[in-house]
Design a protein around this nucleic acid. Structure first.
Length: 692
DNA sequence: GACCCGATAAACAAAT
DNA sequence: TATTTGTTTATCGGGT
């Protein structure tokens, strides 16, 4: 039962609801997941008394409904609110407790007591009404099933009468009843423990004088076939259970068999894979207790002679000693309760993580499947941030990039409602994975859940994010409103988003600087206020590095903004860029003409961003330069038209050094600016020294 | 085993 | 002068 609680307890607030679902259904009339999970009710024993109980309960609920409605009307008239109206937990406590204590035969008087407490909210009233409806449905089901079972029993009796006395059959039936009674008692015990635990946790308030009946209401929503199945399970195990002996034969089977279905329902975790050979998973309290008897060494808390209670590890020589130990050391006390709660959280976290990972896997599979069936396309154009937190980028987000977000189902799980700096589901989905070869050329959009789901995790846990520096830098830049960040801002983003980068600053800061310098996709731009970094997403997808030992800088042209006018991320760059584009274009065209390279013009390139332009030029030059001699290129300061212009700004020349090699340099020499600061670059070039 | 790539460290230079 | 910023290179480890 604790496991059940742990799997559903999301918080303290919901723990109440959990408690209600776990122990009672007055407020939790749904419970289908649990309700369909292997209850043990042997429906064959549904008796008339059970139906009477159901009817009684229904009547009580009807009375309660009337009373509640009256009270609600009174409250509406008087404006009286429950003092605990806004306190969800206490507001739910009393009904839960009362309902759990008197789940089966909640009388009108009791219900009236509940009402007199004035702690029922309209939601609770609604739940009660739903509960009543569920009870009615359940009653019908039970009636049907009861009839069937009665018929079967009569048939059996007739057969026995005709075939003479069959002691074995009778014994079997008796054994079944015995086994079932035992299970009922076990479930009652478990539930009682659960109730006590809830009490201790302050989740329940038991009215003095109210019988703390652990019995549960009917298994709502349980259909006869399920009951039959459960009964089959029970009867299949009776042969082993009957040998264990029990003293519960005095238990009123006909009354408990109905009510006991609820504990089975609420305490069991639906796990269709946990059942083997018709056996329920040992996760169920009932099955646990059964398994203790059937398989003494299969107790979840006992293994290898050691008590597996969290934090215990006490050595128990045999199962009996373990049981003694369990009862003595892990009795129901505050410590055990606290440990149970911890375990709940552990299980909850694990299940949460499992669910996330499952979704991630599904998204990955979906994505890969889609991708494998799709014709391989070029990298998505500017598959940039489409986060809702970035209105600018959202508006820029290419619709084509959306198919690359296959994990949209994960979005509701981790809704991102934080500030602009938050890594969002969509904003991070293009972050390339760290140390992955496939990210070299194509930064394949990874599962959108990767960071979004772990965003808080990375913020708080000193766990290295599984992304490259380049990917993170890019993300930082793209998340910025203007798609540009200073180095210090990038630092801050790292420290803000990742706890891992809150230490060893020298290391990762150096790595950032190195990456900024090394990757072609990062473009350094200067203006009168300083320098900042932008990202060329196309180049990022190419994942190329700037060639070592090659000149890297070029100088923007004053007309450069015409080229990048359609790239909002470079607006600021353009504003501060001067004397850039005209020489660039001229030099480029000249160079390309020299190299028989298809001429790129601004118009021919559509809406080129700086990156697109540079990338396109690079692409063309790449092919062209592969056939050229590289010896002369670097020696010429003007070998790259973009290098020929300087003023300050952009770090990166749009031409690969290797790409710029060759005749191109000859053409562009004239454009060399006196203040071109790449002299240093060339000085480092052995091949250039000759030319210099 | 070769190769590629990312991370890291270090040296150096320029700018602040 | 110290710090920050930027560049470059070398090396290492992991993956292909």
């Amino acid at each position: 039962m604790m496991q059940e609680s742990g799997t559903e307890t999301k918080s303290n607030g919901s723990a109440i609801q959990n408690g209600s679902s776990g122990g009672n259904h007055l407020l939790e009339c749904g419970g289908l997941r649990e309700g369909r999970s292997n209850g043990e009710t042997p429906a064959v024993d549904v008796g008339a008394a059970d139906l009477a109980h159901v009817q009684q309960q229904q009547q009580a609920l009807q009375v309660a409904r009337q009373l509640l409605l009256q009270q609600q009307q009174q409250q509406q008239v008087s404006g009286l609110k429950s003092p605990k109206r806004n306190d969800k937990q206490p507001a739910l406590q009393v009904p839960v407790s009362v309902a759990m204590m008197t789940p089966q035969v909640i009388t009108p008087q009791q219900m009236q007591q509940i009402l007199q407490q004035q702690v029922l909210s309209p939601q609770q009233l609604q739940v009660l009404l739903q509960q009543q409806q569920a009870l009615m449905l359940q009653q019908q089901q039970l009636q049907e099933f009861y009839k069937k079972q009665q018929e079967q029993l009569q048939l059996q009796l007739l057969q026995q009468q005709h075939a003479g006395k069959q002691p074995k059959e009778q014994q079997q039936v008796a054994t079944q009843q015995l086994a079932f009674q035992q299970q009922l008692l076990q479930m009652q015990q478990l539930q009682q423990q659960h109730l006590l635990s809830l009490q201790r946790q302050g989740l329940l308030t038991i009215q003095p004088g109210q019988p703390a009946l652990p019995l549960q209401p009917l298994a709502q929503g349980m259909i006869p076939t399920e009951l039959q199945q459960l009964w089959k399970e029970v009867t299949s195990a009776h042969t082993t259970e009957e040998t264990t002996g029990n003293n519960h034969s005095s238990l009123d089977l006909t009354t408990t068999c109905v009510s006991s279905s609820a504990p089975s329902k609420t305490s069991l975790i639906m796990n269709p894979h946990a059942s083997t050979n018709g056996q329920l998973s040992a996760h169920t309290p009932k099955r646990e207790s059964l398994s203790h008897e059937e398989h003494p060494h299969s107790h979840p808390l006992y293994g290898h002679g050691v008590c597996k209670w969290p934090g215990c590890e006490a050595v128990c020589e045999d199962f009996q000693s373990f049981l003694k130990h369990l009862n003595s050391e892990h009795a129901l006390d505050d410590r055990s309760t606290a440990q149970c709660r911890v375990q709940m959280q552990v299980v909850q976290q694990l299940e949460l993580q499992l669910a996330k990972d499952k979704e991630r896997l599904q998204a990955m599979m979906t994505h890969l499947h889609v991708k494998s069936t799709e014709p391989k396309t070029a990298p998505q154009p500017l598959n940039l941030v489409s986060s809702v937190t970035l209105s600018k980028s959202a508006s820029e987000a290419s619709p084509q990039s959306l198919p690359h977000t296959p994990t949209t189902p994960t979005a509701p799980i981790t809704p991102v409602t934080q500030g602009p700096s938050v890594i969002t589901t969509t904003s991070m989905h293009t972050v390339g994975p760290i140390r992955r070869r496939y990210s070299d050329k194509y930064n394949v959009p990874i599962s959108s859940a990767d960071i979004a789901q772990n965003q808080e995790f990375y913020k708080n846990a000193e766990v290295r994010p599984p992304f490259t520096y380049a990917s993170l830098i890019r993300q930082a830049i793209l998340e910025s409103p203007e798609k540009q960040l200073t180095l210090n801002e990038i630092y801050n983003w790292f420290t803000r988003m990742f706890a891992y980068f809150r230490r060893n600053a020298a290391t990762w800061k150096g790595a950032i600087r190195t990456n900024l310098s090394l990757h072609k996709c990062f473009i350094r731009v200067e203006d009168e206020f300083g320098s900042f970094w932008t990202v060329d997403d196309e180049e990022f997808k190419r994942g190329r590095h700037i060639q070592r030992g090659r000149p890297r800088k070029y100088c923007p042209d004053e007309n450069f903004d015409e080229l990048v006018a359609h790239n909002p991320s470079l607006i600021k760059n353009m504003q501060s860029s001067h004397a850039y584009c005209a020489p660039l274009n001229a030099a480029l065209q000249a160079s390309m003409a020299e190299n028989s390279i298809p001429l790129y013009t601004t118009a021919s390139m559509g809406n080129p961003t700086l990156g697109n332009l540079a990338s396109a030029i690079r692409e063309e030059l790449n092919g062209a330069m592969e056939h050229t001699n590289s010896n002369e290129s670097d020696s010429s300061p003007g070998r790259s038209p973009m290098q020929a212009v300087h003023p300050v700004h952009v770090k990166e020349e749009p031409l690969d050094p290797e790409e710029a090699e060759g005749p191109l340099s000859l053409v562009t020499t004239a454009n060399h600016s006196p203040d071109f600061d790449h002299d240093r670059d060339y000085e480092d070039e052995p091949v250039n020294e000759d030319m210099e």
